[in-house]
Simulated scan of single mutants.
Amino acid sequence: MELKGKLAIVTGVSKGIGLETVKILLNAGMVVAGWGRTNNSIEDENYHFFKTDVADWDNVQASSKATREKLGKASVLVNNAGFGVQGLIHEMDVNDWKAMFDVNVHGLFYCTKLAVPDMIAMEEGHIVNISSIAGTNGVETMSGYVGTKHAVTGIGHSIFKELRNHGIKVTTIYPGSTNTHFFDKIAFANANEHMMRPEDIAQTVLGALQTHPNYHVVDVEVRPLKPKG
């Protein structure tokens, strides 16, 4: 897709992969609508922040309407917002479990549901879902988070088949350990320099977007080469 001048919506833009994705899409000449509960420090005439809780259907509808009225139709949606809570299945707090599904799964659905009609009308679009290698296997003490990311895998694989004939691509990216704040409350790992950089995940997003119209990157699994240094 030719990206210059087109609109991208990116969720979860305050830090980490979302922040770096905003930066790299701006550098590629896109207009970016950042959706998140918290903004970042980017100051760019082509960056527009819309305070959004993706877990709240009414809030997402309001942000979608405001974005469309101010910036037009989005050609790209990057579903990045997400979080994980660690815990054994029998000790997991019910509210934490529900919150993960509300953000990681329902939020992705809400944003995608509202973006797709405009992409169908334009006969062009690209949805990128930031999943995790937790979307491909089990992880002890992370069953809730893993469950949400397996859901993202299934949704992505299903909707690319629904949307491909409308000229819309759906790509799911499965990062391994990445140096972000995700690990702040995870007991078995700490963010460190041997993990992947969030800007490299953002570069992977850009690479998928820049492909030929008839070239569809469906799944991308990325891992650190030397996770222990």
Rank of each mutant, 00 (worst) to 15 (best):
residue 33 A to I: 00
residue 34 G to A: 08
residue 35 W to I: 07
residue 35 W to K: 05
residue 37 R to V: 10
residue 37 R to L: 11
residue 38 T to L: 11
residue 38 T to D: 13
residue 39 N to D: 15
residue 42 I to Q: 06
residue 43 E to T: 15
residue 44 D to G: 03
residue 45 E to L: 09
residue 46 N to C: 08
residue 46 N to E: 10
residue 46 N to K: 14
residue 47 Y to D: 04
residue 50 F to G: 05
residue 51 K to G: 05
residue 53 D to H: 11
residue 54 V to E: 03
residue 55 A to I: 04
residue 57 W to Q: 14
residue 57 W to V: 12
residue 57 W to S: 13
residue 58 D to E: 14
residue 59 N to Q: 14
residue 65 K to S: 12
residue 66 A to C: 06
residue 68 R to S: 09
residue 68 R to H: 11
residue 69 E to N: 13
residue 69 E to I: 09
residue 70 K to P: 06
residue 71 L to T: 09
residue 72 G to I: 10
residue 74 A to E: 13
residue 77 L to F: 07
residue 81 A to N: 06
residue 81 A to V: 06
residue 82 G to N: 01
residue 85 V to N: 01
residue 85 V to C: 00
residue 87 G to I: 07
residue 90 H to A: 04
residue 91 E to I: 00
residue 91 E to D: 13
residue 91 E to P: 00
residue 92 M to S: 03
residue 92 M to T: 04
residue 93 D to M: 03
residue 94 V to N: 00
residue 94 V to R: 00
residue 95 N to P: 01
residue 95 N to M: 05
residue 95 N to T: 11
residue 95 N to D: 11
residue 96 D to M: 02
residue 97 W to Y: 13
residue 97 W to V: 00
residue 97 W to K: 01
residue 98 K to Y: 02
residue 99 A to P: 00
residue 102 D to I: 04
residue 102 D to M: 07
residue 103 V to Y: 02
residue 103 V to P: 02
residue 106 H to K: 14
residue 107 G to W: 11
residue 108 L to H: 02
residue 109 F to T: 05
residue 111 C to E: 05
residue 112 T to W: 03
residue 112 T to G: 01
residue 112 T to N: 03
residue 113 K to R: 14
residue 113 K to P: 07
residue 114 L to R: 01
residue 115 A to F: 07
residue 116 V to R: 02
residue 117 P to Y: 11
residue 118 D to T: 12
residue 118 D to F: 04
residue 119 M to V: 14
residue 119 M to H: 11
residue 119 M to N: 12
residue 120 I to H: 06
residue 120 I to E: 15
residue 120 I to P: 04
residue 120 I to Y: 06
residue 121 A to T: 14
residue 121 A to P: 00
residue 121 A to Y: 05
residue 124 E to I: 01
residue 125 G to N: 10
residue 125 G to H: 12
residue 125 G to V: 12
residue 125 G to T: 13
residue 127 I to Y: 03
residue 129 N to A: 03
residue 130 I to F: 06
residue 131 S to H: 08
residue 131 S to I: 08
residue 133 I to Q: 12
residue 134 A to G: 12
residue 135 G to Y: 11
residue 139 V to W: 14
residue 140 E to L: 09
residue 143 S to L: 09
residue 143 S to V: 11
residue 144 G to D: 04
residue 146 V to Q: 07
residue 146 V to M: 08
residue 146 V to Y: 05
residue 146 V to C: 14
residue 146 V to A: 13
